[in-house]
Amino acid sequence: MDRIMKTNDTIRVFVGCDPNNCDLEQMMVLDYSIHKHTSMPVEIVWMQLSRDPDSYWYSNPETGKGWDTTKWSTPFSGFRWAIPEYCNYSGRAIYMDADVVILDDLAKLWQHPIKGQSIVAAKANADMTRLCTCVWDCDAAKNVVLPIEKLKKDPKSHKEMMALFKKNTQLIEPYQNSYNCIDGEDLAIEQIKILHYSDMGTQFSHKYSLPRVSEEGIEHWFDGEVLPHPRQDLVDLFDTYYNEALTAGYDLESYRIEPFGSFPKKSQQGYIGNKVTRPKASKSLFAKLFKR
């Protein structure tokens, strides 16, 4: 049965981002791109680690309370699973990483049918399951996704939830791949609905954020090698949206918060990106794994 009638009048967008102001450029461009294209009201929740015990995203690495991030690759990897409970298991919610540019009306993704046993609409095919841009049916997720307290305490919960969805593909309603286009893939810009510049080493925002955080005396959360993105047209697209946002009155300072400080996470030294941005590196890794 199609559960599209459970959608809300306001699109709820939950965005995973850094808690130490490293992602301000990404946040500004994402915010601007959402409002540039979307025909419905939008509410954005920036999901960032917080020192406030009353925050849903509370973490205290020194005492071991709140979210345990030790096994995460990013400062927000496990937050996506907490969204249905945050929404009181009611209505819909879109999750996306901060490294995204919206190029089409987000209302179309918001209204995507979620049918049968599916509890989330996402990119899923034979060799890839990606929940980095997805639409939750929060009510349907209640008996599948772990409760918030278990998600917080177990640093392996993120990996375990991903494994659950990859094994039980009936939980995922596949949507058009261009709603989570990874680093351009083989598509022209006109064919992309949501651009996810997913390779953490080639992100368009680095040329703005790395000099800024260095000047501010901050260490960026990504500690891997920084490389140029292979598609100049997408680099130019990000630059255009960045400058349009500034011209439209958007301001990096609007997204700045009190820095969280240090937190544990997996190192990205040796990170090889993906087969779109670095096909040779991906093939090399596959060969090494096959040899083992």
Score class of each variant (00 low, 15 high):
residue 177 N to V: 08
residue 2 D to R: 09
residue 232 Q to R: 12
residue 10 T to P: 01
residue 240 T to Q: 15
residue 75 P to M: 00
residue 100 V to G: 02
residue 52 D to C: 07
residue 59 S to I: 06
residue 108 K to C: 10
residue 53 P to L: 08
residue 8 N to G: 05
residue 176 Q to N: 14
residue 264 P to L: 06
residue 144 V to T: 13
residue 217 G to D: 03
residue 135 V to C: 04
residue 36 K to T: 13
residue 111 Q to W: 10
residue 9 D to Q: 14
residue 37 H to W: 12
residue 232 Q to M: 14
residue 86 Y to E: 02
residue 131 L to K: 02
residue 234 L to C: 05
residue 125 N to D: 15
residue 281 A to T: 07
residue 130 R to N: 15
residue 273 G to T: 00
residue 159 K to A: 15
residue 137 D to I: 05
residue 155 P to C: 08
residue 64 G to E: 05
residue 285 L to F: 09
residue 24 L to F: 04
residue 283 K to Y: 10
residue 261 G to M: 05
residue 149 E to D: 15
residue 142 K to H: 10
residue 59 S to V: 04
residue 285 L to S: 09
residue 218 I to M: 13
residue 151 L to E: 01
residue 270 G to Y: 07
residue 290 F to P: 03
residue 281 A to W: 06
residue 81 W to Y: 12
residue 88 N to W: 06
residue 162 M to Y: 09
residue 139 D to Q: 15
residue 281 A to F: 07
residue 113 P to W: 02
residue 248 A to W: 04
residue 71 K to M: 13
residue 262 S to Y: 07
residue 127 D to S: 15
residue 124 A to F: 11
residue 227 L to S: 11
residue 73 S to D: 13
residue 84 P to G: 11
residue 179 Y to Q: 01
residue 195 L to M: 04
residue 159 K to V: 10
residue 289 L to N: 11
residue 19 P to C: 07
residue 290 F to R: 14
residue 254 S to T: 13
residue 3 R to C: 05
residue 9 D to Y: 10
residue 10 T to C: 11
residue 219 E to F: 09
residue 1 M to K: 14
residue 135 V to S: 03
residue 33 S to F: 04
residue 198 S to P: 05
residue 247 T to I: 14
residue 109 L to I: 07
residue 100 V to P: 00
residue 113 P to R: 01
residue 191 Q to E: 15
residue 45 V to G: 09
residue 50 S to E: 04
residue 243 N to H: 15
residue 117 Q to S: 15
residue 230 P to I: 03
residue 247 T to M: 12
residue 133 T to M: 05
residue 33 S to E: 03
residue 265 K to N: 07
residue 179 Y to M: 08
residue 203 Q to W: 02
residue 92 R to E: 03
residue 173 E to H: 08
residue 85 E to T: 11
residue 6 K to I: 14
residue 284 S to Y: 09
residue 4 I to W: 11
residue 262 S to T: 10
residue 76 F to R: 00
residue 231 R to T: 05
residue 156 K to L: 14
residue 119 I to G: 00
residue 189 I to Y: 04
residue 269 Q to E: 11
residue 182 I to M: 01
residue 271 Y to S: 01
residue 206 H to Y: 02
residue 239 D to C: 10
residue 275 K to E: 14
residue 181 C to N: 03
residue 280 K to V: 12
residue 180 N to D: 14
residue 252 L to S: 04
residue 219 E to C: 12
residue 6 K to Q: 12
residue 271 Y to P: 05
residue 179 Y to F: 12
residue 64 G to Y: 10
residue 136 W to S: 03
